[in-house]
């Protein structure tokens, strides 16, 4: 791609990632939640993959690491759900509503769910785009 698209991508990708984390962390206050936040995070990676070439992307991302991140986030999600059911930490529920820590363990559930969804969609996008890069007919 040309320099305009690359420069715009360099400017936009951190902003999109910040927006994704905002949506997923404020899921219990404003509309949004773990799933849309994770998909926004993955769409930042989608923009990156479309704009840059294979070598530039693979310098910074390795999919094995993303798979590890996904496993760790899934185990953390399972642990938090079990902790919530078994222990039921009532201290976190005592804050006033509409503040950041008001939702109890919901904020952690949102964060780890967002990481699970984002890394899964990144793996899907990366698998599809790698096939496109390998085939000689493609224009990317």
């Amino acid at each position: 791609m040309d320099a305009i698209i690359k420069t715009t991508t360099r400017l936009l990708v951190p902003l999109i990632m910040v927006f994704g984390f905002y949506v997923s962390l404020h899921g219990h206050i404003s509309p949004g939640g773990g799933f849309p936040g994770g998909v926004i995070l993955a769409s930042a990676f989608l923009l990156l993959v479309i704009a840059f070439t294979e070598k530039e992307v693979e310098k910074h991302f390795s999919e094995i690491k993303i798979g590890d991140l996904k496993s760790v986030a899934s185990i953390a999600l399972l642990g938090i759900v079990l902790l919530e059911v078994i222990v039921r930490p009532d201290i976190l529920h005592l804050q006033t509503p509409l503040t950041l820590w008001s939702g109890g363990v919901t904020i952690f559930l949102n964060l780890f769910g967002a990481i699970v969804v984002a890394s899964g969609l990144v793996i899907i996008v990366y698998s599809l785009v790698k096939e496109e890069w390998k085939s000689k007919k493609s224009k990317w």
């Binding site: 899921g27 219990h28 509309p31 976190l92 109890g104 919901t106």
Partner: peptide, 13 residues
């Protein structure tokens, strides 16, 4: 649950 967003309260709590 303490969360003002009721959809999120149902889905995640």
């Amino acid at each position: 649950t303490g969360s003002a967003n009721i959809v999120n309260a149902i889905v995640w709590d």
